[in-house]
């Protein structure tokens, strides 16, 4: 079993590093070509979310297993300002910066599972999972 990978996210360069590491790990876990792209893209979006809203944070990529399924868990955590209205943040087109606001709702569409926990003034944790297709 592959080990967990942690990546500190402090700048736009770390976004590139995060998605490359994500792709490498996902490939070892047996994900196929189009899923690798999907995972790398979702990681890029959540890492970007950290850089844009919190400035810095951390990403953890963890291999997971459920009965005979292999998968990858991505946890993006920051201690930034938090999201006051999660429902709104998950709506297509919503964003408090100039971005298109597709990051979070888009990532949710790309991955199999997506949860977000956020407290204003404390930070945000996004957890996403994707399973290798049998």
């Amino acid at each position: 079993m592959e080990n967990e990978v942690r990546i500190a996210i402090n700048s736009d360069q770390d976004i590139v590093i995060a998605r490359q590491q994500g792709r490498t790990l996902a490939s070892k876990l047996g994900f196929n070509g189009s899923d690798l792209t999907v995972i790398a893209t979702a990681i890029s979006e959540v890492a970007r979310n950290i850089v844009e809203f919190a400035g810095k944070g951390e990403l953890a990529l963890t291999p997971i297993q459920q009965s005979h399924k292999q998968g990858l868990m991505v946890v993006a955590h920051d201690d930034g300002p938090g999201i006051p209205n999660i429902q709104l943040a998950l709506q297509d087109g919503f964003s408090t910066t100039a971005s298109l606001g597709l990051g979070l709702p888009g990532s949710r569409r790309l991955m199999d599972e997506f949860t977000i926990v956020s407290a204003v003034g404390k930070g945000t944790t996004v957890t996403m999972r994707k399973w290798v297709r049998g």
């Binding site: 070509g33 189009s34 792209t37 999907v38 979006e45 297509d92 888009g106 569409r109 790309l110």
Partner: peptide, 14 residues
Amino acid sequence: IQPEVAFAMVQLGL
């Protein structure tokens, strides 16, 4: 644009 990239983009809504 690579085929997989294209499909990931449209899934993302881009």
